[in-house]
Computed example of a mutant assay.
Amino acid sequence: MQNYSAVDSNLVKSIILPRSKLSRKGENGITLIVGGNRIYHGAPLLSSIAALRSGTDLVYTAIPKINLSSSRNFSADLIFVPFPDDKLTSGAVRRLLNMIPKKIDAAGIGMGLSFSKSQSLLALINGLLQQEVRLIVDAGALVPEILNNITNTKTVVTPHAGEFKRLFGILPTGELDEQLKLVTKFAREYGLVIALKGFWNIVSDGDQTFVTQRTTPAMTVGGTGDILSGLVAGYLTKYESIHACILGLYFNGMAGLNIFNRMGLHMVASDLLDELPYVMKAFDKISD
């Protein structure tokens, strides 16, 4: 059996960092979320609110201009950076990189995102990496063309099984041990942190591997992965990549379990956004 560690509350407690009571806005993290298209307008919104729930101070949400009005009505807590087309183009990337603040700590890319050509996605990834922004790549951005650009950067990728096959060419099926070997192999080979989502959530950086089981089948509802990506993007502003994944998976799963205990199999993803603070609060730390 491939070696791994289970994710539990004691591990999470050991990872959580205290927040200084003297800290000021921006010192607890600034996050960028890039996603959305003509159909999937909600994905970057779920991710962005989740990033705020993680404790990051500011979230900039880059979405197609066509979705701007409805997105503003969704939440007054987000700062929107619209790009002109319903797909990410090279021109949109240039404007986006010029519009966002110079100090972005972490970015989540891909939730509901469409792009015209892979070159535009690569330009965004390269531009952010050049600014030393820590990345999580998910959903529509998980295409094999990105691998050369993110190799050995400790970028986080969060595929489900189908996206894993699209990215790495192999479908992760079979028993837990087989999936563990695949995730560990590709994480080590490409210098990434991989969080494979499924009944078993497997996280590996090639050296350390962690597993947490899905808390409830209610979590298969659309949007829960977008919330996970937002949590990880928020945590990446303060934590190393593998710890950001562990925290995101744990809190997302525990929030889902609490909702399941109240509502059964009838939750929707946005229910998680309201539940997250209640499962996180017990782990809060404040320092002088």
Rank of each mutant, 00 (worst) to 15 (best):
D85L: 03
F74C: 03
L124V: 03
A244H: 06
R19M: 10
I146L: 07
P172C: 08
A107Y: 01
N258Q: 14
K285V: 05
D8C: 09
I246H: 09
P277L: 09
I15L: 12
V232K: 06
A107H: 02
N73M: 14
L273N: 08
S114R: 11
K103C: 07
E275W: 02
R214N: 14
K25H: 10
L180F: 08
I49L: 15
F164N: 07
P101Q: 11
H243I: 00
S204Y: 06
I242N: 05
G253L: 08
T173Q: 14
R95V: 01
K65N: 14
D138F: 04
V143H: 10
E275Y: 03
N152G: 04
F80A: 04
Q119M: 09
G35V: 04
L228I: 08
I33V: 15
S71P: 07
T61A: 11
V221C: 11
I104H: 04
V143N: 10
P18G: 11
S204W: 05
A195L: 15
K281A: 14
Y4A: 06
K102M: 12
L228V: 06
S116T: 12
A282G: 07
P101H: 10
D207R: 14
E27N: 11
A255S: 13
R24M: 12
V133G: 10
Y235S: 01
G36W: 01
R262M: 11
K102E: 15
L171M: 15
G36F: 02
K154G: 00
F164Y: 14
P82V: 00
V143W: 08
